[in-house]
Write a protein that binds this DNA or RNA. Structure first.
Length: 152
DNA sequence: GCCAACGTTGGC
DNA sequence: GCCAACGTTGGC
């Protein structure tokens, strides 16, 4: 079992969107090689902390689970998609997607400021200055602490 | 809206 | 393969 943090702009796909979706939600549009490689490393059942970015209340808002491991991201082939990549073909896809299901919403949003106050979380990539990765691994201990804080 | 940090592109 | 220029991300 692995643990991850996925960033999302809530205007696009919030924790509530994930929780309200009848089916699993496709996590598409990742266009960074390092983030893509992390997506490919995700296993069925892995737990995912959902982080809201570029919004009024930035922070970790809940938990989701990987329900389908990496497959070719369909949006890379779709000229109508903002994630379209003209350099790929069906025979030579470049980008991957996974599917996730929302599990639960935290009782409050865990801000970056609050997370930074936890000495045990200082190693988290999410908290590094200038961090831009949208898919990041997290240790089990870090996950457990964040989950605890979110449910207080 | 500012701007630091970072990834990508492309000329050489 | 170097590196400057450029575009994007994302917190604040």
């Amino acid at each position: 079992m692995n643990y991850w943090i996925f960033k999302t702009e809530p205007a696009e796909c919030s924790i509530d969107d994930l929780l309200n979706a009848a089916e699993a939600t496709i996590w598409e549009g990742v266009r960074n090689y390092q983030a893509r490689n992390f997506l490919r490393a995700a296993s069925f059942g892995d737990l995912v902390l959902i982080h809201h970015s570029s919004c009024a209340e930035v922070g970790i808002t809940g938990v989701a689970r990987i329900t389908e491991t990496a497959f070719a991201d369909p949006s890379q082939f779709d000229p109508a998609s903002p994630y379209f990549d003209s350099k790929v073909s069906l025979a030579n896809p470049r980008w991957s997607a996974v599917k996730v299901k929302g599990i639960e919403r935290f009782n409050r949003v865990l801000s970056l400021q609050e997370l930074r106050q936890q000495a045990e979380l200082h190693q988290m990539q999410l908290l590094r200055k200038g961090n831009r990765l949208s898919v990041m691994p997290i240790t089990e201990d870090e996950y457990q602490l964040v989950y605890f804080l979110g449910k207080v």
